[in-house]
Simulated assay, not measured.
Amino acid sequence: MTDSASVPPQQRARRSAAVDAAVGAGRALGLTVTDARVLHDLFSVVVHLAPAPVVARVPTVLPRSTDPAVQSSRQRTELDVAQWLADRGTPVLPPSPLVPREPVRRDGFSMTFWQYVEEDRDREPDYAANAESTAGLHAAMRDYPGPLSFLSAAEPEFVEDSLALLDESPGLLTPADVDRARREWRVLAPLVRSRAAFEEAFPGVGLQPVHGDSPPANIFAGVDGDRYADFELVTYGPVEWDLAALGPELEAAYDRGARRHGIRPLNPDVLRFVNAVGMLRAVATLTLAPQLPVLEDYLRPAVDHWRTLPFAGGLPG
């Protein structure tokens, strides 16, 4: 958790409001909450509603294009996918069994509730091992029967809205950067928005349910072992989406896991495509910096790297 003394006033106020909403919602659901504690605060405020063994995750940094009904629907899908995986023995952070498995809206926030699992804070993440493990998650997710939209994790509405705002965003981008980003999106957007267009561009590449938000970076180190977490962007698409922008070492680790689990290895052409889309999502995320100023520092290396890459991942413009 970030030291509150170093947190900007806007973020402190947002955190306080999110904690109050989570505590109020938890008590309204019948939980005893006397010692709420913030576990994490970046795009979401994650609150342990102690002494109840329940964690509330409260998204707080959101694009202006966020639709409350769409947000609630995606949170409901996340809860369903996590519970489905847990029921089949996949190690995940599961929804809390102590409250209904539904998002709750309170005080302008939409939140979800999860089982509290103690974190092993002394263990450093092994991203290569996590990437190899991701193939096992993909093998487990292949049979998920619920409806999922094609590449919704790319958040095309957010990207388009953000690209329209980039002229107003201070900081890292030059006018040439903004022009390139918009031209790249014109090439990439049709393949993001249409499964048929994607399959025409990449014939024979299998699609399936995928995590949606870089699972090698979203594996929770519990004291009882690693667990997959944060299925907020769960989607239907190529497995390459979950390895976007992670580099050759982690791609090779994933392929080792794929061989072990009997699923296909990563396709280099699709990787170039998802890497290009992922870079544009990073550029688009700069428009959230007024809400979360530290984003500029986080995104600076990504923007610098994007400038060195082939236009639109090498796809014909």
Rank of each mutant, 00 (worst) to 15 (best):
R264L: 14
R14A: 11
A36N: 09
E132I: 07
R300Y: 03
L165R: 15
D67C: 08
E240K: 10
P293G: 11
D161V: 08
Y236Q: 00
T308P: 04
V81A: 12
L62A: 02
A217W: 10
E118A: 15
L173A: 04
T235I: 12
P170G: 12
L292G: 02
R64T: 01
P301S: 02
L191P: 00
H48D: 09
E232K: 04
L29C: 01
T34V: 02
A21P: 06
D80Q: 10
Q11G: 07
E132W: 10
R57C: 12
G314N: 04
D87C: 04
L79F: 08
P203D: 03
M141T: 00
V92F: 08
A52F: 05
D230P: 03
A36S: 13
W84C: 05
N130D: 14
E168I: 00
P125C: 09
G108E: 03
N267H: 13
S72L: 05
P100D: 01
D122C: 05
A139K: 15
G30N: 06
L172E: 04
Y254K: 06
N218V: 09
F231T: 06
R142F: 13
R15S: 01
V205L: 00
G89L: 04
Y254S: 08
V7A: 11
E232Q: 07
L31E: 01
P316W: 09
V303G: 11
A17L: 08
L280V: 09
F113N: 07
P103S: 08
S65E: 12
T77I: 15
N130M: 01
D20I: 05
T2W: 01
D107N: 13
L165T: 02
E240V: 05
V270P: 01
H48C: 04
S152F: 06
R264H: 12
Y127H: 12
R264V: 08
L295V: 14
L93M: 14
P290L: 12
M279S: 13
H261Q: 04
V92M: 14
S169Q: 14
N218Q: 11
Y228I: 05
P293E: 12
A17S: 15
V274P: 01
L42P: 00
I219R: 14
A86P: 04
P145V: 11
A302N: 12
A128Y: 06
R142G: 12
L233A: 09
V159G: 01
G278C: 07
V33C: 01
R15N: 05
M279E: 13
P8M: 07
E200M: 04
G89E: 07
P215T: 10
M1P: 11
L29M: 03
E124D: 15
T285P: 00
G257M: 10
L166E: 10
D297K: 14
S72I: 06
D107V: 07
L39F: 00
V46E: 03
A129N: 09
R281F: 01
Q75R: 03
A139E: 13
E249R: 13
E118G: 12
R57V: 10
P203W: 07
G26K: 09
V38P: 00
P51R: 06
R193M: 07
E155S: 13
P68K: 05
A13C: 07
R37A: 14
R281G: 03
G171T: 08
E118S: 14
A244W: 01
L166M: 06
A245N: 15
R14C: 03
I219Y: 01
R307V: 13
V61G: 14
L85N: 00
Q75M: 12
A131R: 06
V99K: 01
V117Q: 14
P215V: 11
Q115M: 10
E102H: 04
L191M: 11
P95C: 14
